[in-house]
Amino acid sequence: MKEDENIEALFESLAGSFDGESPREGHRDRFLSRLQEEATGRTKRRDNPWWRNLSIAATIALLLASSVFLFRSEPSLESQVAEISPQASETTRHFAGLVSLQIRELEQMSTPETKPLIDDTLTQLELLDTDYKKLERDLIQGGDSKLILSAMITNFQTRIDLLREVMERVEEVKQFKNENYENTTI
Rank of each mutant, 00 (worst) to 15 (best):
161 D>Q: 12
137 R>F: 04
166 V>R: 08
147 L>M: 11
160 I>K: 06
146 K>C: 00
162 L>Y: 00
150 S>V: 03
145 S>R: 14
164 R>M: 09
166 V>Q: 08
168 E>I: 08
165 E>H: 09
160 I>C: 06
167 M>P: 00
146 K>F: 07
161 D>W: 01
143 G>I: 07
167 M>I: 06
165 E>T: 12
158 T>E: 13
153 I>P: 00
137 R>W: 02
147 L>R: 13
157 Q>I: 03
140 I>W: 07
156 F>V: 03
149 L>V: 12
137 R>I: 13
151 A>F: 02
139 L>R: 08
151 A>I: 01
144 D>G: 03
145 S>E: 14
151 A>L: 10
154 T>M: 08
165 E>P: 00
148 I>Q: 04
146 K>M: 10
151 A>K: 13
167 M>L: 09
149 L>T: 13
153 I>T: 12
144 D>Q: 11
159 R>L: 03
142 G>T: 07
138 D>F: 03
161 D>R: 11
144 D>A: 12
141 Q>R: 14
140 I>A: 07
164 R>I: 01
147 L>Y: 03
139 L>V: 06
145 S>G: 01
149 L>C: 10
137 R>L: 15
155 N>R: 06
154 T>R: 11
139 L>M: 14
156 F>Y: 15
148 I>L: 13
137 R>P: 02
167 M>R: 15
161 D>V: 02
155 N>H: 02
155 N>I: 04
150 S>Y: 09
168 E>H: 11
146 K>Y: 06
157 Q>L: 11
159 R>K: 15
140 I>S: 05
149 L>Y: 00
138 D>Y: 03
160 I>M: 09
160 I>T: 08
147 L>K: 14
149 L>W: 01
141 Q>D: 14
153 I>H: 10
168 E>F: 03
152 M>T: 02
141 Q>N: 15
160 I>L: 15
145 S>K: 13
153 I>G: 04
155 N>W: 03
166 V>D: 07
166 V>A: 08
149 L>Q: 15
155 N>K: 05
164 R>D: 13
145 S>W: 07
142 G>W: 09
162 L>C: 05
164 R>A: 12
165 E>C: 00
139 L>A: 12
142 G>N: 08
137 R>M: 14
142 G>Y: 07
142 G>K: 11
154 T>L: 11
148 I>M: 08
138 D>P: 01
141 Q>E: 15
151 A>G: 03
145 S>Y: 06
162 L>N: 10
158 T>Q: 15
166 V>H: 04
142 G>D: 08
167 M>V: 01
158 T>S: 15
138 D>R: 11
159 R>S: 12
